[in-house]
Amino acid sequence: MGNRYKKFLEWGISTFGVALLYIIGVLLFNETHPFSRFPMYSNFPNWSYSFYLTDEANEIIPFSSLETTGSSVGHLYGSVSDELNIPYGSFRESEEELQQIGDRMMFVLLESNELKYKYINLYRKGFYYQNDSIHDLTVLMTSYERH
């Protein structure tokens, strides 16, 4: 009996041991690379945000011209909000908070990209459900002018 139990334990460790170590790592270090509990789309809240830039004529500047993507800027919004300890989502951010987040996002974006535009606006376009139909709400987060 003892031998069978030992064999079963050995099989368990060799078959799932590495996975178990990763799970322990996630419990210890939380969302710290390489550990993550991969919470992407683990719930479907009644909001989603996307972001865009415009120039002085209010024409949209494609993110590709800044060598980034809309998705990366979306990630940046979450990271900067966390960094500034500003709870985000469900359109709860105040105008001041949005400006604060926007200023920091612009700083991070322009730090690693050369600015080809003299003037940039950063907008947030949000989507939500009301009375079973989708609505959107666009707000200007911040404006940046090159001196």
Binding site: S50, P62, T69, G70, V73, G74
Partner: peptide, 9 residues
């Protein structure tokens, strides 16, 4: 959101 990400890119 996801399709708008691509559009704005």
């Amino acid at each position: 959101k996801s399709f708008y990400y691509h559009y704005y890119t």
